[in-house]
């Protein structure tokens, strides 16, 4: 198994290099020159040139790329043009917020999605099935940002139940240990802060997770329906075990195998969706920051973020594959074909 993991990790490296080339090309070759934006309208040609020299932008693109690449392997992703802070610092200051949100969203999406999918499959063609299908259909069709707006309108504006944005009330902010406020609050034993963070995360997690929930519902339903038609379900029933066990154990476990892959893929796409959710809920994560940096041509930061997201994406896929293998004993790492 370790061999398989190592092999998979090694396979990721060329993809990452490719991703870095794509992003680098997009940013340095096609994007507008950042110098006038950074230096402002009144910058002279001389100051612009000096700035470009200082930031290595006058070197040939290939040289620039190799400089960047060697730096990246050493963990140096450059510094932001604007804040002059190292990119890694900029990213890691914001990343926990995004990951916390994405995890909350995928947990919501998985639990609700699997539940709805199972109910829809077990009660196929019933009102539950129809309602579940409709819910899933709306879930994949509704834009994340509009859903976010609706949630704010209803839960914050109308019911005054939940906050409309932010991660936590400033006064309750726990000392940063992990950067995940909910965990940090628990570490402090500060229940009030935990509750407050929880209240803040509910709406954005709902908005962000809705699409994934819909996809997971559909996948679970069809996978479950297929499983329910299998001979071994009849065997289980013939044993005289309770129907709850037949569904919850014998049918659910095999059905979840394809669902794990979907969950993995969805978690990856949540990082993209976070761009929009964060900007609706003023969530101080990496999403909103990314959009700003792209618009300001802050090359080093954008490159760093895209690379990091791609690494996370690949890691999640690996984890999903490993989960897949633990759920399905028929899978052997060694005999597994490359994707």
């Amino acid at each position: 198994m370790l061999k398989y993991v190592i092999k998979r990790v090694l396979m990721v490296i060329p993809v990452m290099i490719g991703v870095s080339i794509i992003v680098f090309a997009l940013m340095r070759v096609f994007s507008p020159d950042p110098a006038p934006i950074v230096l402002g309208q009144h910058a002279t040609i001389e100051t612009i040139e000096a700035w470009r020299d200082a930031n290595g932008l006058n070197d040939p693109v290939v040289t620039q790329y190799f400089k960047y690449l060697t730096g990246a392997f050493k963990g140096d992703l450059g510094t932001s043009y604007y804040t002059k802070t190292p990119v890694t610092e900029e990213i890691f200051a914001r990343f926990p917020a995004t990951i916390e949100l994405a995890i909350a969203a995928i947990v919501f999406a998985s639990i609700v999605g699997i539940l709805l999918g199972v109910v829809a499959a077990v009660k196929k063609n019933s009102i539950f099935d129809a309602a579940g299908s409709l819910f899933a259909l709306v879930g994949v069709s509704i834009p994340i940002f509009w859903l976010g707006i609706l949630l704010i309108m209803f839960f914050s504006g109308y019911l005054h139940l939940l906050p409309s944005g932010g991660r936590i009330d400033v006064l309750l902010k726990p000392a940063e240990v992990t950067g995940f406020y909910m965990i940090d609050a628990l570490l402090e034993g500060n229940w009030e802060a935990f509750g407050n963070a929880l209240q803040h995360i509910i709406l954005p997690a709902l908005a962000l997770g809705m699409y994934s929930m819909a996809i997971i519902t559909r996948m679970t339903r069809s996978s479950m329906l297929e499983t329910l038609g299998q001979d071994y379900i009849r065997t289980a029933r013939a044993k005289g075990i309770s129907e709850g066990k037949v569904i919850g154990k014998h049918a659910l476990r095999p059905s979840l195998i394809p669902v794990t892959t979907v969950i993995g893929l969805q978690f990856g796409s949540l990082l993209g969706g976070a761009l929009l959710t964060e900007s609706v809920f003023s969530w101080p994560g990496i999403g909103k920051f990314t959009v700003d940096c792209i618009l300001k041509s802050d090359f080093p930061v954008v490159q760093g973020i895209v690379l990091l997201v791609a690494v996370i994406f690949a890691t999640i896929n690996l984890v999903a594959d490993l989960a897949y293998a633990t759920l399905d004993p028929r899978i052997k790492y060694s005999s597994k074909k490359e994707r």
Partner: peptide, 24 residues
């Protein structure tokens, strides 16, 4: 297919925004 894999390794909306930044 490797290039396709690379494109798939970036969330599409992020890639689209990056493209928009490059294209205007």
């Amino acid at each position: 297919m490797r290039v396709m894999d690379m494109m798939l390794a970036i969330p599409s909306i992020l890639l689209a925004i990056t493209l928009m930044a490059a294209l205007g």
